[in-house]
């Protein structure tokens, strides 16, 4: 797998290069701003761009905007955004129209090396990785709508699912049986009026599209 990194902190950029390299991932370029990112992606055609949200020159939402540009210009390139805080608004903007090959994680998550690399590979493979905190925020806003009809356990399952986990992983994380997870998932789809799909990825897409729809409504 080939990755381009955009991160303006020198220390963290070096750390990320080391981390990815140690995980057997090729880092073709490590740049410090959004313009550099777009150029590097054009030049190297990586599988994934790992992007910091706040970068020069304004240190606000450069990464979010670069990710949207990238997704428009090269939909096949996966983008994983990292940020010191996750904001529901950025998530909603990112998820409008693009859900495949997209990730939005708190920077803290890089500390859990294996899980972070898992998430990165999942996104590179066209999957989704949303930070549990983003998911919690997205769900919190929607407690007044049909999601309110979900039981707490079903909400847990949906939240874990939105992070891009498979049924087996959900069962492990929540400490319940795989069959119980399948039952919850079917209930969730029934309550949300969604037709269950075959793969994990399409399932996440369906959920996110639903969330996105509510966001705009």
């Amino acid at each position: 797998m080939r990755v381009v990194i955009a991160e303006d902190s020198v220390l963290l950029r070096a750390g990320l290069v080391k981390l990815l390299t140690s995980g057997g991932i090729e880092v073709c370029a490590a740049v410090n701003d959004a313009d550099g990112l777009l150029r590097a992606v054009d030049e190297h055609r990586p599988d994934l761009a790992l992007v910091d949200v706040r970068m020069p020159p304004t240190h606000t939402d450069e990464g979010v905007r670069a990710a949207l540009t990238l997704k428009r210009r090269r939909p096949a390139t996966a983008v994983l955004l990292l940020s010191q805080y996750v904001e529901e608004r950025y998530a909603a903007e990112l998820l409008t129209g693009h859900t495949g090959g997209l990730g939005y994680l708190l920077k803290d998550r890089v500390a859990d090396v294996d899980e972070f690399l898992d998430a990165l590979r999942r996104v590179a493979a066209g999957g989704t990785a949303l930070d549990p905190e983003v998911v919690a925020q997205l769900l919190a806003r929607r407690r007044t709508d049909p999601l309110r009809r979900l039981t707490p356990r079903e909400t847990d399952v949906l939240a874990t699912m939105a992070e891009g986990r498979s049924n087996t992983a959900i069962a492990d994380i929540l400490g319940i049986g795989r069959h119980a997870v399948e039952k919850h998932v079917n209930n969730i789809f029934a309550k949300l009026h969604l037709t269950p799909a075959d793969t994990d990825h399409r399932r996440v897409l369906a959920v996110l599209h639903y969330l996105d729809h509510v966001e705009r409504a």
């Binding site: 220390l11 963290l12 990320l16 803290d108 500390a111 090396v113």
Partner: peptide, 16 residues
Amino acid sequence: QQRLVALAMTLGMARG
């Protein structure tokens, strides 16, 4: 915050 993230990441790699 950036330094702390780098520190936590280094410790994560060391642990592994």
